[in-house]
């Protein structure tokens, strides 16, 4: 690294990746003990994408992703307690136990949700960017999706409009090479996912999604550029998921050797050894950090288990805002006339 390294920021990225890994290992264990139900999709192996891109952007930037969403929420700073409690369906969960593993929401952190219909959230990601541009804010939208999401109509419609209207969104395809049991090569006629951007006349970037520094640096570059001159980017992060698609997937569509090969390219192991080599971290410190995070993960299970179930009497509270006791109207758009940095016009 030629740039001056900010030790604290580097260590934070390692810490955040470890949080995701240890949290999900705990969640997996709880699922196997049948303490939680529903679907559970683990992000293990892909941590560098969420952590690197969050490190590269601002807390007021919007983020939205699919159902493999624990990593994104935790990277944004959601506590393990509220994350674990959500999987347990408890009232203390990040979505009050109403959303579950696939629907992590955190309004305070501009985490706009995990979304369970493949590709259905991509237009929403463009919508946040639309609103930012409309209001003349310099916020951007991070919209993550899997490699399986790029063949669905909503994706194409959203990307075309994002490009047409120069919306400040970064569409990040986390190419973990499989959509359930379907290898990306079996569902795309175009060989390179990155090349999709050309179809919308959108700038495209390929990133090694196993290298957290590369993710951070390249996303930071894009973010800086589109804050000034809004336009969308198409980003392919090449990564790999170590676990099955969900807990019920035996993963027979790939070989053990393939999996082991990718595990050798582990974003956490690699980054920790780099930090140790650069003298920013000792082996001792790393072990201590890991132990501390493991303890927090165990703690989160206790927190979830001892939390109350949602109150059945409140079953109808969240269908219409009129019934929601905590409902607060969204603050109206501030008057931004005359201070619009983009001289916003959506026409072509």
């Amino acid at each position: 690294m030629s740039k001056k390294v900010n030790k604290e920021a580097e260590l934070k990225m390692l810490y955040d990746m470890l949080v995701i890994r240890r949290f999900e290992e705990k969640a997996q264990q709880q699922y196997q003990m049948q303490k939680i139900g529903g679907f559970l999709h683990l992000y293990i192996g892909q941590e560098a994408v969420a952590v690197g891109s969050v490190a590269a952007t601002r807390p007021d930037d919007y983020m939205i992703t699919a159902y493999r969403d624990h990593g994104h929420a935790l990277a944004r700073g959601m506590g393990m307690n509220e994350a674990m409690a959500e999987i347990f369906g408890k009232a203390t969960g990040c979505s009050k136990g109403l959303g579950g593993s696939m629907h992590y929401f955190d309004k305070a952190r501009n985490m706009m949700g995990g979304h369970a219909i493949v590709g259905g959230h991509v237009p929403l990601g463009a919508g946040f960017a639309f609103a930012a541009r409309y209001r003349g804010e310099d916020r951007i939208s991070l919209c993550y999706m899997g490699d399986g999401a790029i063949n669905i109509g909503a994706f194409h419609e959203a990307l075309n409009m994002a490009a047409l209207w120069r919306l400040p969104a970064i569409f990040i395809c986390e190419n973990n090479q499989f959509a359930m049991g379907t290898a990306a090569t079996r569902s795309n006629h175009l060989k390179e996912i990155a090349d999709r951007g050309a179809g919308y006349n959108m700038k495209s970037v390929v990133i090694d999604g196993m290298d957290v520094r590369e993710v951070r640096d390249k996303i930071a570059e894009i973010a800086t550029a589109i804050r000034k001159e809004p336009e969308p980017y198409w980003v392919e992060c090449r990564t790999y998921r170590y676990r099955g698609h969900s807990m019920s997937d035996p993963g027979t569509y790939r070989t053990k050797e393939e999996l082991e090969k990718h595990k050798k390219d582990d974003p956490i192991t690699n980054f920790s050894s780099v930090l140790i080599k650069e003298g920013l971290l000792t082996d001792e410190e790393f072990k201590k950090m890991d132990a501390e995070i493991k303890a927090l993960a165990s703690e989160s299970v206790k927190f979830a288990e001892s939390s109350p179930d949602p109150d059945v009497a409140k079953l109808h509270d969240y269908t219409f805002v009129e019934n929601d006791p905590n409902y607060q109207p969204i603050a109206t758009t501030p008057d931004v006339r005359g201070q619009n940095p983009f001289s916003c016009t959506f026409s072509v």
């Binding site: 139900g37 529903g38 959500e86 369906g89 408890k90 979505s95 136990g97 109403l98 959303g99 579950g100 629907h103 179930d309 949602p310 059945v312 079953l315 109808h316 969240y318 269908t319």
Partner: peptide, 16 residues
């Protein structure tokens, strides 16, 4: 089903 979107919580789900 109750006239609400399906909640995740097992307790609420059972109730709805």
């Amino acid at each position: 089903m109750e006239e609400i979107p399906v909640p995740y919580s097992e307790v609420l789900e059972h109730a709805m």
